[in-house]
Amino acid sequence: MKALRQTLRQQRRNIAPFDRIRLAKNILSQVQKVIHFHSRQKVAIYLPNDGEIDPKYIQDFVNLLKTNTYLPILAGKSLQFAKIGKNFRKNRFGILEPVSTQILKAKQMNIIFMPLVGFDKHKNRMGMGGGFYDRTLAFKKNQQKFKNPKIYGLAFDCQRLEVGKISVQDWDVPLDKIITPSKVY
């Protein structure tokens, strides 16, 4: 699994800068096919790291609708979500996080977009291996009554495993959809 994760991470890092911009714009059009945003929603995105697809155009679009946007912040071994403001600091992984803003739990979010390392045709996902999103969203796995948040994985098409299946653990939280620049799974 470690070797596969490294291979997939390298594939996404190898995408040329011009292609990254084009593909990030394309993912917005795919997102718009399946999600109808409105101003009262709380939407979590992420800041791209390690070659992840950039949700910048999704963020720009939801900001035009006056939707509240949040970023994940580390809270021990889980995540909380901080409203995007003007002040940021780097967490222990070197990723910027908002400071001095409203902080919400995952249960309070309407939509969470998360980055992926890889995925298969069954919508099984592979993350970076830290389990932060799975611990944060464990309540969705154990109780079917939670309609929100909707969880959408964002990835480049090259991150899909064409052959084989990603092994699923008991603690893995399934995604509602996986969205790439060319397709919605």
Rank of each mutant, 00 (worst) to 15 (best):
I179A: 07
V163C: 11
K90P: 04
R160S: 04
L74G: 02
N91Y: 05
D157G: 05
I35K: 03
A3P: 06
I103A: 02
N110E: 11
S78L: 13
A155H: 04
Y185K: 04
Q11K: 15
L47R: 06
P149I: 06
H38N: 12
N14Y: 03
R89P: 03
P181D: 04
N110A: 05
P17I: 06
R22E: 14
D120E: 11
R160D: 01
T136S: 14
L71K: 02
K145E: 13
Y70M: 05
A138E: 10
N87E: 13
R13N: 13
K140Y: 04
M1P: 02
H38V: 07
T180I: 01
S100V: 08
P72W: 07
F88M: 09
Q108F: 02
F156T: 01
Y70I: 00
Q11S: 14
Y152N: 09
Q159C: 05
Q41A: 06
F132G: 12
K147Y: 08
K90F: 07
V184A: 08
L64V: 08
A44F: 02
R20Q: 10
Q6A: 14
R160T: 01
D134T: 09
N14M: 03
G127V: 13
N148V: 13
T67R: 05
R125P: 11
V168H: 10
Q6K: 14
L154Q: 07
P174E: 11
K141R: 13
L8C: 02
P115T: 08
G76L: 06
